[in-house]
Amino acid sequence: MIDEGVEEDMKLGNACEKFEANLASYLEGDSNPEALSHASECDFCRCLLADLDLIRKVSPELGTEEPPARVWANVRAVLIEEGIVHDPVSFWRRWAPWGSRSLVRHPAPFAAAAAAAVMAVVLFKAPGYLVHSNAPPANVIHSVVFTQDYMAPRDISSLRLTIQQLEQAYRANEASLEPSMKATYQKSLDSLDGEIRECELSMKQQPENDLAREYLSTAYVQKAELLQSALEYNLR
C-alpha cells in the first residue's frame, strides 16, 4: 500500500512534468489555464515560470551593440581598394589626378605652389601690359592679412566679405586694364571661382570634410591675393 504523502508527491511530480512540457508554448503566448493552475499550487513551478518570464521581459533591454567607427572605416577602405565603391571625385583630384594620393596628404605645399603659379603669371605679364588710369584707388586693400592655415567657418565668412570688397574695387578698375591682361586675370578668377564653388558644394554635402574646408580657404586666399595684386598694379 502506498503512503498518502508519497502518492501526493507522485501526483505533483507528474503535474510538474506536464507543466514543464507545456511551459515553452505557454511562454510563446499559447493560452494554457492548466499550466497556470499548476503554477499556483507548486512553489518550484511558480518560481520557474516567474523567472523565465522575467528573462523574456528583460532581454530586449539588452539591445544591440554598435560596432566602433574603425570597423566602418576599414570596410570603406577595403571596398574602395577593391573598386566596389568609389570615392566621390573631388575637385583637387580632377585638378591634379597625377598627385591625388601623395599631395592630398600634404595640401599646404600643393596649395602654395598653385598660388605661386597664379601669381607668377600675373606678375610677369602685368608690368608691360598694365595701363595706368585715373580710376579711384581701392582703399579696401590695406591691411588684408591672409593665412593658408585651417580656418574656422567664421574666418571663412570674414574672408568671403573681404573678397567681395576687393572684387567690387577690381570691377570698378578693370576697364583700365589692357585687354589681354584683363583676360589673363579673368581666366584666373574664373578658375578660382570654379574651385570655390566645388569646395563649397563639398562642404555643403560633407560639413565635416576638413580637406574641403582647407582647400576652400586656400582658394579664397588665392583669389584675394590675385585681386589685391591686380589693384596694386592698377595703382602704380
Binding site: E17, E20, L48, A50, D51, L54, V58, E61
Partner: peptide
C-alpha cells in the same frame, strides 16, 4: 529536465536581473 534543488524551491531570481549579469 529543469534541475530541481531541494530546499530552493520557493526562491526566485531577484526581480531586477541587471544587464551586466544577463
Amino acid at each position: 529536465p529543469v534541475k530541481r534543488e531541494y530546499g530552493d524551491d520557493d526562491r526566485r531570481l531577484l526581480g531586477s536581473v541587471d544587464r551586466i549579469s544577463l
